[in-house]
Design a binder for these strands. Structure first.
Length: 489
DNA sequence: TCGATCACGC
DNA sequence: CGCCAACGTGATCGAA
């Protein structure tokens, strides 16, 4: 190599910026940009040779071949896009903005003067004037005014701020964004391995972060409760079922609709990460129980560790702790975070965790082995040999990388398999979106009987020992409403 | 321009 | 078996 690729790249981009061509490569003259493109290709080719050797040495051939194959699926997903109900988007923007104005002026009412609510510095001053203190610190040790901190605040300004932020995000990131695609088809961008674990990422818009809970615009608690909400926090109707008949609730997912001739289907792996965790732990009893598609991991842990059963007075209490510890383990959570997550003191959290490991000693052995391997060797590999290099002082993330990454590779292989089937049979059905453990498809009615069982079979194929059941739902008709599909045996 | 802070998801 | 909830995208503020 005569020159260094990184240096050349940096120098060339500086040259573009200097000549005001950096906004888009199209702006630069062809005789300037062409040699750059040529070098780009040459360097990419050289890198391919290097990495192919590495892939061979580390036996990551299966992962590499899946990545190449899934690229075609991603291209087709981006090309197909997802249909949006522009009429709904435009219609809802009006009451959303009205509500936003009302909430904003109520905040100014509390503060006594107008200020920039988005500025945490200015907000901090307002809170000080109101005599409100935060019990939470930011990473830079300043007072935090995030949702977690505002939840502790008794003053009514707290809820108003939560609503202002949440609603503002919906308006900006999704409802106004939707209008950029005038034909009502959004083409998001997917990245194969946007995350270090092997998970994909999505942008413009990020379909991975589309709000699940409907937003209450009426300010009338009864409206959300009528839709089955468990609580209303910052205008979010938590747990509410969206319905077009419920006035005053707005849903981002309601915006996403099938195109004429199609219906939306959502194919979800049930408790995927917990089942992969069970597979890694190699607890035969646990794995056997996973054969039941309806097996609930959190229920089981509550029953086994604390001897409670459904209907007991303490059931909800221990089910909550079980769920918190389960997620805590797969996320690599420490005692401090765990105690916050399960609403316990640190001592209590420590005791619950000890009781958990008492009952599931192999879970402890697995977690211990992973972190020790990272500390001693510096790398680990998931079920498909995807390799992770992890710094010594971050060894606690290893368990999560293995579980999250194994899940990601399973879904990618399934997507490739689904594509092969659809292409081979020359079908109209198509994959639109992947959300980590979920695939969203558009299927015409006359293909449903053929496609659904085959797709579920491809997804449920044993790629690890433990069974990973899939639940299929049909959109009713948008992404906001799902009805579980019962397949004839 | 970029770090910090906030919000949303799995 | 006490420290570290994992991984993302994007809007916004405000200091550099």
């Amino acid at each position: 190599m005569g020159d260094d690729a990184a240096v050349y790249d940096a120098e060339f981009k500086a040259y573009l910026t200097k000549n005001k061509w950096s906004k888009h490569f199209d702006y630069a003259p062809i005789d300037v940009i062409a040699p750059y493109c040529e070098r780009d290709c040459v360097y990419a080719g050289m890198m391919l040779a290097v990495y192919e050797r590495y892939i061979e040495e580390t036996q990551q051939g299966r992962v590499w071949s899946t990545e190449r194959a899934v690229t075609k699926v991603l291209w087709e997903m981006e090309h197909a896009g997802i249909g949006t109900d522009l009429e709904y988007a435009r219609g809802q923007l009006v009451p959303m903005k009205e509500r936003l104005e009302d909430v904003t002026s109520s905040i100014y009412g509390y503060s006594g003067y107008e200020f920039n609510i988005n500025s945490t510095q200015q907000l901090n001053k307002v809170m000080g004037n109101l005599g409100v203190k935060s019990t939470v610190k930011t990473t830079k040790n300043n007072p935090s005014w995030a949702a977690q901190a505002l939840a502790q605040v008794k003053h009514p300004i707290a809820n108003a701020i939560l609503e202002q932020r949440g609603l503002g995000k919906l308006v900006k990131d999704y409802f106004e964004k939707a209008l950029e695609w005038e034909d009502g088809v959004q083409h998001a961008s997917f990245k194969n391995w946007g995350a270090v674990t092997g998970r994909m990422s999505c942008a413009n818009p990020n379909l991975h972060s589309v709000a699940k809970n409907p937003q209450d615009l009426s300010g009338d608690v009864d409206v959300a409760l009528l839709a089955g909400a468990k609580a209303i926090v910052g205008g979010k109707a938590v747990g509410a079922k969206y319905s077009d008949e419920t006035e005053g609730l707005v849903s981002v997912r309601r915006m996403y609709v099938p195109r004429p001739g199609y219906r939306l289907y959502m194919l979800d792996y049930s408790q995927m990460e917990m089942r992969i965790f069970a597979d890694y732990v190699k607890d035969e009893v646990l794995s056997a129980l996973c054969e039941d598609p309806l097996f609930d991991f959190h229920d089981h842990v509550a029953e086994q560790v604390w001897g409670v059963s459904k209907g007991d007075e303490m059931w909800d209490f221990y089910r909550f702790k079980a769920k918190g510890i389960n997620f805590g383990l797969v996320f690599g959570m420490g005692i401090n975070a765990l105690s916050l997550a399960i609403d316990s003191t640190k001592d209590e959290a420590k005791r619950y965790k000890a009781e958990y490991f008492d009952r599931f000693p192999r879970a402890y052995e697995f977690i211990d082995l992973v972190s020790k391997t990272v500390e001693q060797r510096g790398w680990i590999r998931n079920r498909f040999n995807r390799r992770y290099w992890i710094d010594y002082d971050r060894s606690y993330v290893g368990v999560n990388y293995l579980i999250q990454g194994t899940g990601a590779d399973i879904v990618k292989e399934a997507m490739v398999g689904i594509r092969e089937f659809l292409v081979e049979r020359d079908l109209m059905s198509r994959q639109l979106v992947q959300v980590h453990d979920e695939i969203i498809m558009e299927i015409p009615d006359d293909e449903r009987e053929l496609v659904l069982p085959v797709v579920m079979g491809i997804m449920e194929k044993r790629r690890i020992e433990t069974y990973l059941p899939v639940e299929a739902s049909v959109g009713g008709p948008s992404w906001a409403q799902k009805t579980v599909v019962e397949l004839a045996a």
